[in-house]
Design a protein around this nucleic acid. Structure first.
Lengths: 335, 335
DNA sequence: CTGAAAGCGCTTACAG
DNA sequence: CTGAAAGCGCTTACAG
């Protein structure tokens, strides 16, 4: 199929993709010679006149080696893939930017795959990525016991997990020590001699709707809590909504603490006390880990672990609305 | 370079990418026969036994045709690219999801390129995409007179513009009639017999910081306005921040109206009156337009134009906090 | 009908 | 030193 524009503007010439063969014919040299000029092969000895002629031709035609052919020959596509639940979630937006920045330095482009947390969609994406021979995959799966992880481990493809500990300690990953949020909550409650009954720990998932449901269940308890720790800022946003609807003041009637410190957190009223996670760095670290595997040719189950920081704002009793930004080293909760 | 996992789990076998040639050797047939089985070529007549043997082999090895080789032969990569300023902006997150959904139906994957509004980064991305032979590009450029658009027009590559009218009326695009926001504002002011002096229309760009600066300039005027129309919701968020800092009540002292209806708009306090743009549909329409060009093999400067709807919330005097969601057909502002 | 060959557009080891 | 050839892994028109 030939791509022919119906509207042709006279002022400018359409530039068609050229091939080495065509250029070679025009320059009266062998295609390999052109290739060597393009790739600046230092071992290439040709006359200055010929070289100049070829370089002029290259500029004139705006020649760019066909990346597909190059990829086939060189066995590398210079493509990374990112598999996440939903880019609409600001947490993943920041993550992607970090990955892209890390990848761009090395000439990589990045495919983005959203799964909406569906194992089927995730599997379909992963199969497609394998077939396309992407050079590496960064997976931020939302489900904990993800069979895809085990599968990925045997696919002969560099990969890195983000924001989840590995099931079996074999996978390279990037996390903050805060991933084990439930455990951290339980430890803190125990330390303070407070109860941490199961009904005080309803499942919320990671987005707003789940936060609403969980908060409603909590407030329906005989002894409703006066403070909640939400697993993510988006879940905290759901808690805000419920509090507001029921006329509860934050933090006087209900203190709320979130997790991630997405941009929205600072804009809520009152500002959300939350745990700051360096999401952009997560992304670039993840990119670095895959690229390292690509370079060395083998999977190093290396890990990058960040220590998150508490950012105190108005939503917790201790906070002030003036964004006091008190940074407190987080309690380490090892696996 | 061979990719060798250092850690080998005994329970499962690593699956290496296989080739047609290897399979052919194992099945004792010609590679082309395997290819025909994979692609379900109806003209292929082979014995049932052979076919069964091949199919078993295919399953056993989890064979997936090398997409790169396929792409080279077939001259299509099944890759689309999206070039936007910043995926962190929820507007573009929604757009991407729409595009991905439209693309996935046809077996396409999508590369995401962020430019941060930098012409240099945009150019670098575009060059890279051309070299990779992506099948189509969707460009949501932030600058109006973008030279990249003219350049793109001559690159022999299907493309679609999103949320901007074409400079010269030659490009396929997807917009809402609301893109011409400044013009709409001016028309409405004229109709109401109100002044629309230049100092009442400061440049804000499209994100929060610009909204803060613009709002500060407006409020420093001898006769500051009591109502503002922000070019995007994010700019409106900046206006909220300034109002709050100066102790101005919204909407009593300052009414604010935004544009786009990003998820955040409904969560602001008071809720932001804004113009709802069907961003997900923008995305899928854009995908449809590129795919159509890819299918037909020529650029059809077709346009998809959506009529946006006004969503009245608490930030405008007319609104109620109960999200009255009054939908008013927008004033058409033709080019 | 069926199998073998050409060719997509590159890169680079190798023969001259 | 330099040019021609092999080969990456596919698909499909074509000869037998």
């Amino acid at each position: 199929m030939v791509f022919t524009p119906e509207t042709n503007v006279n002022e400018a010439i359409d530039v068609m993709p050229t091939t080495l063969k065509e250029l070679a014919a025009r320059a009266n040299v062998h295609p390999s010679t052109i290739s060597r000029v393009v790739n600046q092969d230092p071992s290439l000895r040709i006359g200055q006149a010929t070289r100049t002629r070829i370089e002029a031709l290259l500029r004139e035609t705006e020649y760019r080696p066909n990346g597909v052919a190059r990829g086939l020959k060189l066995r590398q596509t210079l493509v990374l893939a990112v598999v996440i639940p939903d880019i609409t979630n600001p947490f993943f937006g920041g993550l992607f930017r970090g990955i892209e920045d890390g990848a761009a330095q090395r000439g990589y482009q990045v495919l983005l795959c959203n799964t909406d947390g569906s194992p089927d969609r995730q599997r379909a994406h992963l199969h497609s990525l394998i077939a396309r021979r992407v050079d590496g995959v960064i997976l931020a799966s939302s489900f904990l016991k993800d069979p895809a992880v085990r599968w990925l481990r045997h696919q002969h493809l560099p990969y890195v997990l983000v924001n989840r500990f590995s099931d079996e300690g074999l996978d390279p990953f990037v996390v903050s020590t805060g991933v084990l949020r439930r455990r951290g909550y339980q430890a803190a409650m125990a330390e303070s001699g407070l109860p941490a009954r199961p009904e005080l720990q309803p499942e919320s998932g990671f987005v707003e709707e789940g936060g609403i449901r969980a908060m409603e269940r909590l407030l329906a308890l005989p002894e409703p809590p006066t403070a909640v720790f939400a697993v993510t800022d988006m879940v905290a946003v759901g808690a805000y909504a419920v509090a507001r609807r029921l006329g509860l003041r934050v933090p006087e009637d209900l203190a709320i603490v979130g997790y991630n410190d997405i941009p929205l957190a600072a804009r809520l009223i009152p500002g959300l006390t939350t745990v700051h996670v360096p999401i952009h760095e997560f992304g670039s670290a993840a990119a670095r880990l895959v690229l390292e595997q690509i370079d060395t040719g083998h999977v190093t189950p290396k890990r990058v672990v960040y220590t998150p920081e508490l950012v105190v704002r108005g939503s917790s009793a201790a906070g002030t609305e003036e964004r006091a930004a008190v940074h407190v080293a987080s309690r380490g909760v090892g696996e």
